[in-house]
């Protein structure tokens, strides 16, 4: 079972809660996915809509909430948001996101490392969103990240796991769980990440903007489970040379001699 910072998760699918058409659809999709970890963001209250509260929309089910620091452009802003998140949630779980360039939303490795170190010292359970850089993953692990979250491709692009060769190295080296985050656009992408040995995947846009988000959430749950089962079953080696699936011995040799 997946364990992060002492908490067990039977589902290896984490869901983002952004961009759903309504709170009701979001709640139904999350329930259909059977996930136990959901991300949320912090924003200024919309003073024209005082009752718009995502936590009450998510209802009574028990989720681990993973607040993110989206919008932070450097470590200082991320730490300020982290403290607000802890005050709002009453828990120390944090998805650290430091994205200085709104065009690419790529994570700043220097500021992310700096903020991780400081937040871990302050008692946060930090899951940093990071580029798929194996050296950075080790450094984040060394300063106390509870898991690392390398990107498959830029946030919201649905391009899939373009960073697969680097993610393989990260998985190979990591002592903490590896959660592939961002860019996962189809259940097959999620299954692929899980087959590689990722501990979990985080999906948002691909589900929230689907024609039927509830059905898509179910499809992702199945894909994540299939991919994990395949990883645990042990995948066959890749080879350039063909290798017959049917037996080579006992082939007919008389009139069907071409079968030899």
């Amino acid at each position: 079972m997946l364990c992060i910072a002492g908490t067990d998760f039977s589902s290896r699918l984490f869901l983002g809660t952004g961009k759903f058409s309504s709170s009701a659809v979001m709640a139904e999709a999350i329930a259909a996915s059977d996930c136990q970890m959901v991300t949320v963001a912090l924003r200024r209250v919309d003073l024209t809509n005082p009752d718009d509260d995502i936590m009450s929309a998510l209802g009574q089910r028990e989720y681990t909430f993973l607040p993110n620091t989206s919008g932070a452009r450097d470590a200082v802003e991320a730490i300020r948001l982290a403290k607000l998140a802890r005050a709002a949630s009453g828990s120390s779980w944090l998805k650290l996101e430091v994205t200085p360039d709104p065009r690419t939303l790529l994570p700043d490795p220097v500021e992310t490392l700096k903020a991780t170190e400081e937040l871990v010292k302050d008692g946060f359970i930090v899951l940093p969103y990071m580029n798929a850089d194996p050296i950075l993953a080790l450094k984040l692990q060394d300063v106390g990240a509870a898991a690392v979250m390398p990107l498959g491709s830029p946030i919201g692009t649905n391009q899939g796991v373009l960073t697969d060769s680097m993610i393989e190295i990260i998985i190979d080296q990591a002592k903490v769980p590896v959660v592939v985050d961002a860019g996962i656009g189809a259940p097959s992408h999620a299954a692929y990440a899980m087959e590689m040995g990722a501990d979990a995947v985080l999906v948002n846009t691909a589900i929230s903007v689907a024609g039927d988000p509830v059905a898509m959430a179910r499809a992702f749950a199945q894909a994540v489970e299939a991919g994990r089962t395949a990883f645990e079953a042990g995948m066959g080696q890749r080879s350039k040379q063909a290798s017959a699936s049917s037996p080579e011995d006992g082939q007919l040799s008389a009139d069907l001699g071409f079968l030899k």
Binding site: T17, L42, R43, R44, V45, S70, A88
Partner: peptide
């Protein structure tokens, strides 16, 4: 004064 709350996010 800043008044903040959780919203949907990834």
């Amino acid at each position: 004064v800043e008044i903040i709350r959780f919203v949907g996010g990834g």
